[in-house]
Design a protein around this nucleic acid. Structure first.
Lengths: 105, 105
DNA sequence: CATATAGTCAACCACATGGTTCAGTATCAA
DNA sequence: TTGATACTGAACCATGTGGTTGACTATATG
């Protein structure tokens, strides 16, 4: 898997996007990330691992705690990729319209 | 899975992003999509199905062929989500720098 | 030292993903 | 009608994902 693959895959789960949103407010302990989720700390830890593997989060151990920080850099590549399609966003019906025009009888 | 989940998941595979890139040049038959890939047409068909389920591609049958068209609309939501983090893209080392500053002895 | 806290690791489960092959269907063309 | 073309669908396989529980390690605190 290349960088875009892992970035998009990491972003494809609501829990992980929520984790990133919380980290945007600043460094957060892993246990504090787990709080609002209806899942075990182990599960949250796995999500953080996916984010960490994707380079979106850096985890640092201090004492008993793991402190997670946002690293948004990989998002830029994803955003740049999407930006190439910006010209098409308003055209969702254009292709259909063109087809209908071409096949009008 | 919500819309963002399926959109990001659909974009997380190189083959599917390549398919979207080709569709940006215009409507393409499924068999013509399969050409450059080292995989069976069945596999390509599955990828197109994933894109179709995500609303990124519309498939229309005409005669024997399936014509695929790009529908970039769902990308906008993904791009908007990423844009919220734009302020952090340049800060990939800032958190580390701050931490080091705070813990200087 | 004893105990609570923070987290990992391993094992397990159900299900999804990404690929294959083979058989079948629908359409076009000779 | 025969046969090629363009698929789809089912079955299968290996691997990944997302979750659990229970045991373990490491650290802080009384």
């Amino acid at each position: 898997m290349n960088a875009l693959d892992t970035t998009f895959a990491a972003l494809s789960h609501e829990a992980r996007r929520s984790i990133l949103a919380k980290l945007a407010d600043g460094e957060t302990r892993l246990s504090d990330l787990a709080g609002p989720f209806a899942m075990s700390q182990t599960a949250v830890s796995k999500h953080v691992r996916v984010l960490s593997d994707a380079g979106l989060v850096t985890v640092e151990r201090r004492g008993r705690s793991r402190y997670c920080r946002l690293n948004a850099a990989p998002m830029k590549e994803a955003s740049d990729w999407l930006a190439d399609y910006e010209a098409f966003w308003g055209q969702q019906f254009d292709n259909l319209a063109r087809y209908l025009a071409e096949n009008r009888d």
